[in-house]
Simulated scan of single mutants.
Amino acid sequence: MKPPPPANGEKPHRPARPRALTEALLARWPLPETARDADKEARGQVLVVAGSHEMPGAALLAATAALRAGAGKLIIAAPEQVAQGLALAIPEARVIGLATTRTGGFSTRDCDRLAPLGERVSAVVLGPGMQDEAHSVAFVGTLLPLFRQSTVVLDAYAMSVAGQQPFEQPVVMTPHAGEMAHLTGLTKEAVQADALATARAWAARWGACVALKGATTFVAQPDGTALRFDGGTPGLATSGSGDTLAGLIGGLAARGAGPLHACAWGVLLHARAGAALAQQHGALGYLAREIPGQVPALIQSLGHRPARRPATPAQPR
C-alpha cells in the first residue's frame, strides 16, 4: 500500500526505519515491577476465550503461556464440551463452559455470562483454536464492547473482526502472512514482499498493534512506530506455537505492559524459548506445550541484563 504523492510538491514522508527488537532494547524497557509483598491481584487477571471441540488444546496452550508470563489470575472460557477437561488439565484456572453452534463456533447468547468480568479483567486473549469464522466474528464483535477497559489480543478467526467496528480498547493482532492475506485481500506473496509496509499500513487502518509473524517478524503501531525481529528459529513453526505467543502477550498485558511493550517482550521471549528448546532437543521436533516452561527463567534473565544506557524509554522509537 503506497501513500499518495504530496500535492504541494514536497518530498514524500518516509517512515522511520524499524527499531531492532533485541535483549538490549528490552533491558532499557523493563516489564512493570511488582512489589515483593504484592498479591496475585497486583499482576492482573487474564481471560482466555479459546478452543473448540476439535482443538481444545489451543485454549490450554494460550492459558498456560499467560500464567508463565506472570499473570496473577487466569480465567478460561471454552466450549462446554471440553470445559471439564480443561479444568482438570490446568487446575490453576477458573473455567467457564460456553455454548457452541452446530458448526463449532461460540454462541453470542453467552456473551452476557462473561460481561461481569469486564470490570476485573486486565487482558483478554481471543481466538486460539476457534472454529466457524462467521460465528466467531459475531461472537467477538459482541464481546469486545464488554471489555473496554482491557487490552485484547486477537488471534486466528477472532482477527476477522478487524475493520468491522472501531476498537474501543487497546488491541494486539498476531497474524502470519497467510492470515494477513486473508484479512486484507492481498496475496500471501504481496504480504511477504513488503511485510513492514503491510504491517504499518494495516495497523494504522485497524487502529491496532500488529505483529506480522514470519522468519522476520515486524511489530507495528498505528502511528507507524515499528520493531523488527530477526531471531526466530525453524522449530517455532509448529502446531500451537501461535496460540502460545498470543497467551504470552496476554499475560504480559495483564501485568500492566502496553500493547507494543507486551508484544515486543512476547515475541522475543517466544523466540528465545524456542532457541533454548532447540539446544535441548534439536532444531526441529520440540513442542509448543514446552515453550511456556522456558519463559519465567528468561524473564528473570532479561530483567537483570544490564542496560547500555541509563534511560528507560516509555516507548522505543
Rank of each mutant, 00 (worst) to 15 (best):
T100L: 01
T100S: 13
T101D: 02
T103G: 11
G105W: 02
G105L: 05
G105K: 03
F106R: 04
S107E: 14
T108L: 06
R109S: 14
D110A: 02
C111E: 15
C111K: 00
C111D: 10
R113F: 05
A115H: 10
G118N: 09
G118C: 11
R120Y: 02
S122H: 13
V124W: 12
V124T: 12
L126D: 03
L126T: 11
L126R: 14
G127C: 10
P128V: 09
G129Q: 09
Q131G: 02
D132R: 09
E133W: 02
A134M: 08
S136M: 06
F139W: 13
F139M: 04
F139T: 12
V140D: 03
V140K: 10
G141E: 15
L143D: 14
L144F: 08
P145M: 11
L146C: 11
F147P: 07
F147M: 08
R148G: 11
R148L: 08
R148I: 04
Q149I: 02
Q149N: 14
T151N: 06
V152F: 03
V152S: 12
V153M: 08
L154S: 12
A156I: 04
A158L: 06
M159T: 04
V161K: 08
G163F: 11
F167W: 13
F167G: 13
F167Q: 13
E168M: 07
Q169D: 04
P170I: 00
P170F: 01
V171C: 14
M173T: 09
M173R: 13
P175K: 13
A177L: 05
M180R: 14
A181R: 15
H182P: 00
L183S: 01
L183R: 06
L183C: 07
G185Q: 07
G185N: 08
T187H: 04
K188V: 12
E189K: 14
Q192C: 10
D194Y: 04
D194S: 10
D194N: 15
R200G: 07
A201I: 00
A203F: 04
A204P: 03
W206H: 09
W206S: 06
G207F: 09
V210F: 05
L212R: 08
L212G: 12
K213R: 13
G214N: 06
G214A: 09
T217F: 01
T217Y: 00
V219P: 01
V219D: 00
Q221E: 14
Q221A: 12
P222F: 01
D223T: 07
G224L: 07
T225D: 00
T225I: 12
L227A: 06
F229G: 01
F229H: 15
D230A: 10
G231E: 04
G232V: 04
G235R: 07
G235S: 10
A237I: 05
A237M: 08
T238Y: 01
S239H: 06
S239Q: 05
G240F: 02
G240H: 01
S241F: 05
S241Q: 03
G242S: 04
L245K: 09
